[in-house]
Design a protein around this nucleic acid. Sequence first.
DNA 1: CAGTGGATGCTCT
DNA 2: GAGCATCCACTGT
Length: 188
Amino acid sequence: MREKPLSRDFFARPAREVAPDLIGVTLLVDGVGGPIVEVEAYQQDEPASHAYPGPTKRNAAMFGPPGRAYVYRSYGIHWCLNVVCLAPGRADAVLLRALEPTRGLDAMRARRGVEPERALCSGPGKLCEALAVTGAYDGLPLDEPPFAFLARETEPEIAVGRRIGITKAAELEWRYGLAGSRFLSRRF
DNA sequence: CAGTGGATGCTCT
DNA sequence: GAGCATCCACTGT
């Protein structure tokens, strides 16, 4: 069987369990996307997380049920997509940072401009632009259209390293990727 | 390649 | 009013 959607409770686990399991999972938004190759875990008790200060208007989705999207604007320009996870007494999420563009390449190129394929989705802001994810998707369930998460068929080799673009809790190695992938935002 | 800085808008103090 | 979970263009090797 191919194209098997992730089970509903896939996301109902702590972010650091979900994050490596997302590598190789195919993400589609309205049929456009491909296998995820890079993610980062964030959890409330750690100061780099948007949930660290407690619930606010922006991070409300992180404090809602697991298996939904948390989308926020980054640096006033880009959108970034997270999946909301579940941990006891703590808000958890996984930031989707990069994927290998395999489906809807024409749509992605049209949205991003002419680019080498490897740069279409090699970063959280690029990924959202290529898949047309905006703040309108904040809080939407991930097991319903426009989203689709399709289970991987083989176990990938996972690379681990420090998260990118943060200053607080920068020493934590909560970035996970597909080892050797050409579609990462940066090498591990 | 590596490093730097500007664009840009919204959230929270 | 500060500070970003970023990207790109531009500089200098």
